[in-house]
């Protein structure tokens, strides 16, 4: 078999690992991208297969192959679930570096619209992964190999210049639409729960539960990636769709890789004051901290919140 080791010199060291992946596909259910699109080609296993194809020369480097490799939020749930102990994201990062050298990039990482960028450099300081830097001639640029797609830069950018082309259902508009659809289509709908993908969410459900005519439920969990990406408009939107309450779940204080939990905490505190000022019980907006994998606590917090909402009743 011909090997493309010249072009993929970083990937080469993973050759044994690519064979050791038994391709069981148990990573699917943990991947927010796969859950969102439903295409196997967006799953972690697909990236491993793509890496093997690129290294072995069975597929050529292309925009489409790069697109797959760069579309990852580094939540690392696939790694935690991997039967074979494959360090998937390390493979992805090396593949990304090789692809970048070959001139291929992908839309899964953030970028900067230079025309809108005021060069304030807030995003450079806010990026927890040192992926953003200022370049004299090119302005604020992103190293796509370092960018983990957490999107903190998007939320801190005052000019709306920081962007991510494909947020796989976790962008503000997509989340608002899904909250709106849930509230409109479920008789018992009461709460929207925004949940951080980095910690416990994937443990809660086996996979995306298909909607059925027989299934009604009182709350919907929406993956918002890091709590640091939550913003005012998004947290208030469910109330406009007649939600009785909104819950925000983030990692414990010292556990967030992106320091987003602290930003979320401040935001929720602030919004609770706003709710109070317009005579809405601030208890209808609640922030909880859940340790990684503690689905019992997560479920208990949701149940307690929904119980409380039942006592409070709908907003008049």
């Amino acid at each position: 078999m011909k090997k493309n080791t010249k072009a993929f010199k970083r990937l080469e060291k993973w050759e044994g690992t690519l064979a050791n992946c038994i391709r069981c596909g148990y990573c699917f259910e943990h991947c927010p991208l796969f859950k969102y699109t439903g295409w196997e080609s967006d799953s972690p296993r697909a990236k491993i297969i793509t890496a093997f194809g690129l290294l072995s020369g069975e597929i050529d480097p292309s925009e489409s192959a790069a697109h797959k490799m760069f579309s990852c939020f580094y939540c690392k749930r696939c790694e935690a679930a991997c039967s074979s102990g494959v360090k998937l994201t390390e493979v992805f990062t090396d593949a990304k570096k090789d692809l970048l050298e070959l001139g291929f990039n992908g839309p899964g990482t953030t970028s900067t619209t230079q025309m809108n960028c005021a060069r304030c450099l807030i995003c450079v300081g806010a990026c927890p992964h040192e992926a953003r830097f200022y370049h004299e001639g090119r302005g604020v640029v992103v190293d796509p190999a370092k960018c983990k797609g957490c999107g903190i830069c998007i939320e801190v950018c005052p000019a709306g210049a920081a962007k991510i082309q494909n947020s796989f259902g976790t962008g503000r508009k997509e989340l608002m639409d899904r909250a709106s659809i849930f509230m409109a289509t479920h008789k018992s709908a009461k709460a929207i729960v925004f949940a951080c993908n980095w910690s416990y969410y994937p443990d809660l459900q086996a996979s995306t539960l298909p909607d059925t005519e027989t299934r009604d439920k009182s709350y919907e969990i929406l993956v918002n990636l890091c709590g640091g990406r939550l913003e005012r408009q998004l947290l208030m939107a469910p109330f406009l769709y007649n939600a009785w309450g909104v819950m925000v779940a983030v990692c414990p204080d010292d556990k967030c890789e992106h320091n987003g939990n602290l930003r979320a905490k401040e935001l929720v505190e602030d919004l609770r004051h706003t709710l109070k000022s317009i005579r809405i019980d601030p208890e209808r907006l609640r922030l909880v901290q859940i340790p990684a994998g503690d689905k019992g606590k997560f479920q208990a917090e949701i149940d307690t919140f929904v119980d409380r909402l039942n006592t409070l009743g709908p907003i008049r």
Binding site: I22, R23, C24, G25, W39, E40, S41, A46, I49, T50, G53, E58, I59, D60, S62, S64, A65, K68
Partner: peptide
């Protein structure tokens, strides 16, 4: 529908030794 070779390549595999 998917017809790009990089997508097709992925759907050529399962958990077996074949492709």
């Amino acid at each position: 529908i998917k017809t790009d070779p990089s997508d097709l390549y992925i759907y050529g595999s399962d958990s077996s030794v074949h492709h």
